[in-house]
Design a protein around this nucleic acid. Sequence first.
DNA 1: TGTACATCAGTGAACGCGCGTTCACTGATGTAC
DNA 2: TGTACATCAGTGAACGCGCGTTCACTGATGTAC
Lengths: 205, 205
Amino acid sequence: MSKRGYHHGNLREALIDAALTLIAEKGPHGFTMAEAAKLADVSAAAPYRHFTGREELLVELARQGYERFAESLEQAYRGGHPSSLAAFEAVGYAYLAFARDHPGHYIAMFESGVAPNSSRALAAACARANQVLVRAAGDLSQHLPAHRRPPTELFAAHVTAMSHGIVELYARGAPGERSPFTPEELLETGIGIYLRGLGFLDPDT
Amino acid sequence: MSKRGYHHGNLREALIDAALTLIAEKGPHGFTMAEAAKLADVSAAAPYRHFTGREELLVELARQGYERFAESLEQAYRGGHPSSLAAFEAVGYAYLAFARDHPGHYIAMFESGVAPNSSRALAAACARANQVLVRAAGDLSQHLPAHRRPPTELFAAHVTAMSHGIVELYARGAPGERSPFTPEELLETGIGIYLRGLGFLDPDT
DNA sequence: TGTACATCAGTGAACGCGCGTTCACTGATGTAC
DNA sequence: TGTACATCAGTGAACGCGCGTTCACTGATGTAC
């Protein structure tokens, strides 16, 4: 970092980080341009050199969030190795891990009121993340006999809904007061039962 | 209603209704005391005769929401008749129906940032609603042999998480862009597969 | 039933605040020759 | 390498706004006798 001169050098990134911190700490509306600027050690007017306004910054947070989310999920999926089942489950854990490790991004993506079609780039990033989930579900369901195979989108939506529900209700200090189970336990057992219902896994264990 | 005099007559209820309307229309932070007052045809100071402040009004919305939510779920459960399975599924539909029919309440309960322990009454209402879900899950799981019976709280948490996830992601104009499935289809099939995984329902249909 | 009075539920004006945003500015940085 | 100049990324002051909330007030309503 070293002593910097008049110019900040990386204000755009600093503002994004500040906003993420504020959002994670104080909820989806707990961030203001003024406060983000202060956190980045810059005057209140400076952010407008990098973003046209608050909305654009929020959209950028969501976009970057979906992009990294997609990367995390892809990383976990690793092309379906060593098996589609193992990869599928890894994606589930990656979902929870992302929500835990990047709360600011997660909130910007799902709780800030930013519509995924606010910009082309955001919509693309959102679609990219969804595709990983759909692909994981699709690959896995190939192992089922065709007549018991659910539509891939339906399968993916079930798993996404359960993951998101767990994050919202049982991760973070959220409502539904702390349950006696960790989010990981909830997801592992929930998906396990669901997959057994589809015909995966030994029905008697 | 008829021509009313100087006094509004039922301002407290009118403010609650106004706040619910605003929240449903404009998101969790899309309501202000000033706007609620205007919607109720009253000066901006009037609400403070009935609520100590904005926060108290929000908490009241959540409390009333949980109370009605509990009633809806209880109504659907009807003591487990005609069968615990049918009653269980009715509770699931009631969950979705509540979110759809009372968006203002649902948002105040789950998306406004109001902590369920903000007041004794709110915590009690929240617990009451949860108990219906836990009871429905507990009664149903009695039909399973003990060694395959999941902990009731776990079972209930799975179903709650999936229901909530579906509401947040696939009901309303929310993120994840409209999926090709209705929330009801998603819940019915998702819970169906899950229950089959637990050992309910014919595994070959 | 009528009157005197307390209480109640509104009003309207005002406040302080912090926010998002704009604007003219200035000193630092990058570039052409 | 040195100089002249354009551009860039900040500053600081200011704005208008709407919000939450307070306060002294007043006319309507309820109550005791």
